[in-house]
Design a binder for these strands. Structure first.
Lengths: 212, 212
DNA sequence: GGCTGACTAGATAGATCACTCTAGCGTATG
DNA sequence: CATACGCTAGAGTGATCTATCTAGTCAGCC
């Protein structure tokens, strides 16, 4: 273990270890002791940097994971030739990570989101904000392809419905079959959306719904 | 509280209370003490009926929830006029339950499935089996509509990808918007699937958001 | 009546939980 | 050098966790 002259600040190590553990074991399943051990940080430092305790640390770690995934979305969607292939590659990438990590690394915040939704309001808000930022990021690429804002948002939510649902089944079954099917449908949805977007007279859609 | 001369056996009360708590608070978030309190059962009875402790009780409760949902799927798909409207009504029903319970009652096992996937093999197997039985049940209806077995399974998995993903976003956002979108796409997928199954040459409109 | 096994009942153990507290270190600044 | 302060370091607290243990209750059967 290269820990000799690591320059990573304690606060960041704590945050990183927490994000990692939350992803795999969830919120209630992750103990402070375990976080301290994994981050090789002194116990007291946890409460020095996060006076709000586990809840504050958890919410912060969720937001960190959120930003990391924002960057991942960006990497896929700005690096690809077009939105359709970007979508396909994103789902394939998710499947590959699942296989490589023995189905441990799925969505970094989904487990926590389900756990805390009715248990901790600050944590619930953190997960809600992260999901919202992913959707917003994703939507911007579809808007760039010519979709109007509300349609872009709908497509983005659909993509996340598909990938999150597939994560659950893939982890339970230890199989990437659901992710494969989710990716195929996601690709079809995106192809259809961007295909109809460029036409000047798009098929009339039902009235747009307000976002919140 | 009508608890006077309840005839419900202790074992069933324990199981029911556990299933309820697991749905809302997850596996690690649910304590034996809480289960005992909710089921008004003596503590010793838990270990009498479930010698394997929390893990055995949890796995059993997951299977109970699974059976309850099997019955729900059956009720929707055998009571409806056709598979397309059954699908639409199922998703609408899920959205309605979410609203009525303040977004607490979503999938009864999804939270647990994500939590235990890397933590408890017996529990993971229980969730995997329950998901499998749901998919199998659902597939049988599509086979009945003329789809071949593998295509029926693909459609079923897609439906569950959609609903499970939507559950996550709906709970985090406290909004049924994702479920509404998931339902719309699910309906389109089913319509496309059963439409192409019965007719060798699909004369349906070409611009549909089809899965293939 | 007396025996047996299923179930009830809860005290208790030992581990672990989140969290607090005090003390000391290290570096920058007076 | 001295003082201040951000941070380290971990012992300690009370609560709570899962699990065990013993004792008691009750019904059916000989």
């Amino acid at each position: 273990m290269a820990k000799a002259q690591v320059k990573v600040p304690t606060r960041d190590r704590i945050l990183g270890a927490t994000a990692d553990l939350l992803r795999r074991k969830g919120y209630t399943g992750t103990g402070l002791k375990e976080i301290v051990r994994a981050s090789e940080a002194p116990f007291g430092s946890v409460y020095h940097f996060f006076p709000g305790g586990k809840e504050e640390l958890g919410a912060e770690a969720i937001r960190l994971s959120g930003k990391t995934y924002n960057a991942l979305i960006q990497a896929f969607y700005e690096g690809a030739r077009d939105l359709v292939s970007a979508t396909g590659e994103f789902f394939e990438g998710a499947a590959q990570v699942l296989r490589e990590t023995n189905y441990e690394d799925a969505c970094p915040i989904a487990t926590v989101a389900l756990e805390v939704a009715s248990a901790s309001e600050p944590m619930r808000e953190a997960t809600a904000e992260v999901f919202e930022s992913w959707i917003a990021d994703c939507s911007s690429y579809f808007v760039g392809a010519g979709l109007d804002a509300s349609r872009a948002r709908e497509v983005s939510i659909t993509l996340f419905n598909l990938i999150e649902g597939a994560f659950i089944l893939c982890r339970a079954w230890k199989s990437t079959e659901p992710m494969k099917l989710a990716g195929e449908l996601a690709v079809a949805v995106v192809r259809d959306a961007v295909g109809t977007a460029s036409k000047p007279n798009p098929r009339h859609r039902a009235g747009s719904r307000s976002a919140r």
